[in-house]
């Protein structure tokens, strides 16, 4: 790259940083509800009631089976034909649709991560909890989930990283996140090599900082608590 390269990147930087901000905001806004959705459907899939298990299974099958881009298009373009989303939410429907699509998709994977974590805990722990008079909810809350959660951290981190990368698909509905900002800048400057390099590096920075935080958390929880 010549000296003009730095100039171009420098020039594009304010836009790209705006993009990073949105990438981070959308990621966080999706990861939190996706984790809650995942926990709920994991518990449904582990229920002793057949119809609740069915609901959980259908959810996972459907949203693990659909390409995320199709879900994004479906919610952003198809659903408004049935429900007056734009009248209800105006411009913010873009954000809402994006978060719903990401949540449904990531939630399906998180469901399986949480379910596997819960199943990995020895059944004797549940029996011991029952034997001191705990009900199902208390056994889950105080005995099973705290132990399962530690085992879930590595696969959950994978999924959170996946979520950050998946926000790039939101460029298809013109969410001005990092990928979209890169596209916009290139459409007028034609500096594809420089900008995509800068975009790639910025994704890595975001994801590697998350990895660093998670490694730290994992280490701390392993020392203090078992």
């Amino acid at each position: 790259m010549d000296s003009g390269t730095l100039g171009i990147i420098f020039d594009a930087m304010p836009m790209l940083i705006e993009g990073v901000k949105l990438t981070v905001i959308y990621s966080i806004a999706a990861i939190i509800p996706a984790t809650i959705v995942g926990l709920i459907f994991a518990l449904l899939k582990l229920s002793s009631l057949g119809f609740l298990r069915r609901i959980g299974e259908v959810y996972v099958h459907v949203f693990r089976g659909l390409p995320l881009l199709v879900v994004i298009f479906y919610i952003y373009f198809a659903v408004p034909h049935v429900l007056p989303m734009h009248a209800w939410f105006g411009d913010s429907y873009r954000f809402i649709a994006a978060i719903i699509a990401l949540t449904l998709n990531e939630g399906a994977y998180i469901t399986e991560i949480i379910r596997a974590g819960i199943l990995s805990i020895d059944h004797g722990q549940t029996e011991a909890a029952y034997s001191i008079g705990m009900n199902k909810f208390q056994a889950m809350r105080f005995i099973i989930l705290p132990q399962a959660f530690k085992r879930m951290i590595p696969p959950l981190m994978n999924q959170f990283i996946q979520t950050i990368k998946d926000t790039s698909l939101l460029s298809a509905i013109s969410v001005a996140e990092l990928t979209r900002q890169g596209q916009i800048y290139i459409s007028t400057s034609f500096a594809a090599l420089q900008i995509w390099t800068a975009v790639a590096i910025m994704y890595l920075i975001v994801i590697l900082s998350l990895t660093a935080i998670s490694t730290k958390l994992e280490r701390r929880w392993q020392i203090d608590k078992r």
């Binding site: 020895d122 004797g124 722990q125 011991a128 034997s131 001191i132 008079g133 705290p146 132990q147 608590k225």
Partner: peptide, 15 residues
């Protein structure tokens, strides 16, 4: 609550 149980494999809460 009123029936205590002790297991062969202890089943203490590991955490």
């Amino acid at each position: 609550k009123e029936v205590g149980m002790v297991f062969q494999r202890f089943n203490l809460f590991q955490h």
